[in-house]
């Protein structure tokens, strides 16, 4: 659907050269929600703009359904851009136009007859739930409503792809969830491929199928959201996951726990089907070992469960050892260094 082939973008700021995107190769499949996460300055915004050629790649190529946009004449490029909807962090609505006027704008550019435009606009406004705001001006709307207008406007020309530039970063958590739900609806009901960039891991966690992590212009990790969350490779990826899932209790709690004579702590992680079986209870009963869950979480990711628990075991040392060995054959177990906190 969208393919980056060793794409690079270098900006020249005076005498200094900034390599915003460095040799990125990435393939986004039709119908998926693909997220690119990175800290600010990682180059994700530039990468996104290479898709609809708002930025020209310095080297490499970007293909949309096999077509390299950079090779198209300007007129063809503008036509193809209508098949790539775009929404923005600051919404970028036209303040001189009403809500309906904003949504109608891309249709007017495409030269669609007025009657058809009106029908399409009311259809789109009902899709995003803003039918009653048609004649309002953007400044009368809340942030979430503005983004809904942005989405309706981006969908007007029935695109195959929707690219989202930090679409929820200016919104509060509740509104963010609303907009994410809407994006999911766009993907599910209309079958539109969604490519989004964000610096918020929970955005990736809640709607993306696959994720790419960017740092200093490069993609450092790509994978399904489930794999990336359950088995992150790169330290930066781990940092992003920590931002949404804190897998260690605070240093203060750990210290208190140890002072009270706390035993060894084990991290038990498990995913998928195994979460349905009473594994922990069965094995500890078998060896007459008690267990105590100290800290942890169980999450649903892409409709699969993932658990990450800190557990202490009490009982005969040999029995604990045997229980551990049996447990390790079913789920992942590792001892946690207490000083690590």
């Amino acid at each position: 659907m969208i393919e980056f082939k060793n794409a690079s973008k270098t900006f020249r700021l005076g005498k200094r050269e900034v390599n915003a995107v460095k040799g990125v190769s990435l393939a986004i499949e039709q119908g998926e929600i693909f997220g690119i996460i990175g800290f600010s300055g990682a180059g994700k915004s530039t990468l996104l703009r290479l898709v609809n050629l708002l930025e020209q790649p310095t080297s490499g190529a970007i293909q949309i359904q096999g077509v390299d946009l950079a090779t198209l004449p300007k007129k063809e490029l503008r036509k193809l851009r209508r098949k790539i909807g775009m929404i923005f962090q600051n919404f970028n609505l036209f303040s001189s136009r009403t809500v309906a006027g904003n949504v109608a704008y891309p249709l007017k550019l495409a030269g669609i007859p007025k009657k058809e435009i009106n029908e399409r606009v009311s259809e789109l406004l009902s899709f995003v739930g803003l039918t009653d705001k048609a004649n309002d001006y953007p400044e009368q709307l809340s942030g979430g409503q503005k983004q809904r207008v942005g989405i309706a406007r981006a969908l007007a020309t029935s695109p195959d792809i929707l690219i989202c530039d930090e679409a929820t970063s200016a919104l509060d958590p509740d509104t963010t969830s609303d907009i994410l739900r809407l994006l999911k609806k766009v993907n599910h009901e209309l079958g539109i491929t969604v490519l989004l960039i964000t610096h918020e891991m929970h955005v990736i966690q809640s709607i993306c199928d696959r994720v790419a992590v960017m740092e200093e212009g490069e993609v450092i990790e790509v994978g399904s959201v489930f794999d990336t969350f359950t088995n992150p490779k790169h330290p930066t990826t781990k940092r992003f996951i920590k931002s949404v899932e804190n897998d260690l209790p605070s240093a203060k709690l750990l210290r208190e726990w140890r002072e009270k004579g706390g035993k060894r702590l084990y991290r038990v992680t498990f995913k998928g089907e195994i979460t349905n079986a009473p594994v922990l209870s069965q094995i500890t009963q078998k060896y007459s070992v008690d267990f105590n869950i100290v800290h942890g979480y169980i999450r649903e990711l892409q409709e699969r469960l993932f658990g990450n628990l800190l557990i202490s075991f009490e009982g005969n040392a040999d029995a604990i050892e045997s229980a551990m060995i049996e447990l390790q054959s079913i789920v992942d177990v590792e001892e946690v260094e207490l000083d690590a906190g």
């Binding site: 036509k79 775009m86 923005f88 001189s96 550019l109």
Partner: peptide
């Protein structure tokens, strides 16, 4: 004028001439 608005119009396939009379002039009027 917010450059983001111009960028949005560009992303929607507006030509420079269309940007001038459908975005720049109405937004600055």
């Amino acid at each position: 004028i917010d450059p983001g608005v111009v960028e949005a119009a560009k992303a929607m396939g507006a030509s420079p001439f269309q940007i001038i009379y459908t975005v720049l002039i109405p937004e600055a009027l």
